[in-house]
């Protein structure tokens, strides 16, 4: 009978759950899961913008010079910049200071707020972040706070999954506050059942899908409201400098969690028409629910993922 070992912890201001289905003993699995947990803490430690001493923040305060950075930071920034290019800036990692000003400035663990006045510079964009693959270095043309909020969690999930795959586990689920990767099958040998939250009735599901060897991420306007700006939430349209106001939630399914993470944010910003078109073009699956509760998705979304209302 396969064992089912599950662990919960807090990282990146959310509850993370990792569960493995395996025939091994619980104690052994427990120790194995800890290896994956370590990935989360490491990514958080390096990529957090809520700690002035993090590697990300130390990089952020330096402009006009090449700074060689760790592999984790480099790979996260490169991915963020590529996503920004791909989406024409609908996704933009240079918005950290704006997010601080919108009230997303509190370290969830210490309760301390951060205020990076050095980055009070107009018109920064991802184009001001220059990266050099060979030297693994980053040059910031303007002062800014880099925000890896829509990349780091996905990256941590992918790394944790890599760690478990490297240890020959096939069946597991990593869930970081609704940003999730499902590998293999659940304890019944079936694809994992994943619910997509109803964006308005928050205790209900809009529906469920069946997921195997894929990641899913939902960005919603109901999570993390701005404590200072009424009607605004954590999703920022970098071009309009406000939260998009048509969609209630946007779900993306992708082979990698960091893709699902960053493109659910990007597609949310792009909106119903161009967001879905973009996802079609990239062959990512996407389901959008508008504030007026109309559903739009990429072709055959519901058939492909065994959608149930």
């Amino acid at each position: 009978m396969p064992m089912h070992c599950k662990k919960r912890f807090i990282c990146m201001d959310t509850v993370v759950t990792i569960q493995i289905i395996s025939g091994e003993s619980k104690d052994h699995l427990d120790a194995e899961i800890d290896k994956a947990v370590a990935m989360f803490y490491q990514v958080e430690r390096i990529c957090t913008r809520f700690d002035p001493e993090s590697e990300l923040m130390k990089l952020s305060s330096q402009t006009g010079v090449w700074v060689s950075v760790s592999r984790i930071l480099y790979s996260a920034i490169r991915f963020a910049v590529e996503t920004a290019r791909e989406t024409g800036g609908a996704f933009d990692p240079s918005i950290g200071r704006k997010q601080e000003q919108r009230g997303f400035n509190e370290n969830y663990l210490s309760g301390k707020t951060i205020s990076s006045e050095f980055a009070d510079v107009e018109n920064t964009s991802y184009r001001d972040i220059i990266i050099d693959d060979k030297r693994q270095a980053v040059l910031l043309k303007k002062q800014m706070v880099i925000d890896l909020g829509a990349v780091a969690k996905g990256l941590a999930i992918d790394l944790a999954a890599q760690e478990l795959h490297a240890r020959s586990y096939k069946n597991f689920l990593i869930n970081a506050g609704g940003d999730l990767y499902a590998s293999g099958s659940d304890e019944n040998g079936e694809p994992w059942i994943v619910g997509i939250r109803h964006p308005i009735r928050n205790r209900e599901l809009a529906g469920t899908i069946r997921l195997t060897d894929a990641a899913i991420c939902t960005s919603g306007d109901y999570e993390r409201l701005s404590p200072v700006l009424p009607g605004e939430n954590h999703i920022l349209d970098p071009h309009k400098n406000q939260s998009p106001d048509v969609l209630a939630s946007c779900t993306v399914i992708a082979p990698f969690a960091m893709l699902a993470d960053s493109f659910s944010t990007a597609a949310f910003v792009m909106g119903m028409d161009s967001g879905v078109r973009k996802m079609e073009k990239m062959n990512l699956d996407c389901l959008m629910i508008s504030r007026s509760m109309s559903f739009v998705s990429t072709k055959k979304f519901k058939e492909k993922w065994s959608w149930q209302d």
Binding site: A38, K58, V69, S75, A76, D158, E163, F256, L284
Partner: peptide, 30 residues
């Protein structure tokens, strides 16, 4: 199929970050 460019980018990103290892020490930025 996800485009080869994005498959390559994701694979490279995870590969590079993963080889950092979980007990590794980095910040060269400091």
């Amino acid at each position: 199929k996800l485009s080869p460019k994005w498959i390559a980018l994701c694979t490279a990103t995870i590969g590079l970050a993963y080889t950092a290892g979980y007990i590794v020490t980095e910040p060269k930025a400091v």
